[in-house]
Write a protein that binds this DNA or RNA. Sequence first.
DNA 1: TCAACACTTCGACGCTTGTCTAAACGTCTA
DNA 2: TAGACGTTTAGACAAGCGTCGAAGTGTTGA
Lengths: 112, 112
Amino acid sequence: MSSGHKRDGDPVAEEPLELSDRQFAAVAKALSDPRRFGILSEIAASEGALPCCALSDADKVSAATISHHIKELETSGLIATVRNGRFVELVFQRTTLVAYMRRLSRSLAPGS
Amino acid sequence: MSSGHKRDGDPVAEEPLELSDRQFAAVAKALSDPRRFGILSEIAASEGALPCCALSDADKVSAATISHHIKELETSGLIATVRNGRFVELVFQRTTLVAYMRRLSRSLAPGS
DNA sequence: TCAACACTTCGACGCTTGTCTAAACGTCTA
DNA sequence: TAGACGTTTAGACAAGCGTCGAAGTGTTGA
């Protein structure tokens, strides 16, 4: 990936992204359900974007349930969705996860 | 605390601590409630140990609710409790949080 | 045009969870 | 010993959540 390095004078693209209290709670909640976390892992594992119907959970639970979890993940900002014909592409938003973890560290590690 | 530094050849005390699936889910759930996260932050912020009744949430919700959250945090491994006379000291378990974040990174960052 | 497909929305169903009050327990101190 | 105090447990309640089936929406392709 090209985001491993960070140029010195790049002012815009790699802004830290601070989560609001509401966003932070939403991310924490979104991560707290095992199935939803599994879905998110799969999305993150796929390079680029994948459609809903490609999720391996798709044949374990109903489509309605998948759709519900997808919406939850999207609301929290952990994924973005892009309509592509009759498919919906799911794109992992790594910046949100990073912001979540940074806030976790910051809130729970006063000393170091 | 004396654990800020880590000696080179210390083989035992600082083992990475891998979370089981159940533990991971428990930590995620424990972190997902704002009030509980606030309590955890306060525990983490206090150097050493503090008793339940010193929590600032103690005058916003009932003692029973506090006790419930404490137990949840303890079950997840995020804190440890030590009885001390009629008080209970709450000790943040940083290793659990670190293990949680490491697994988060590992599950959601396949490339890097 | 019409059927198949990928998803979404709706309404409902149980289970879980955060919260409370009341009572109990264990420990300290007067 | 008795009361005060910090905490836990039990029981109950409302709200939220994960799940489903069924119906709806929009798109593709025969």
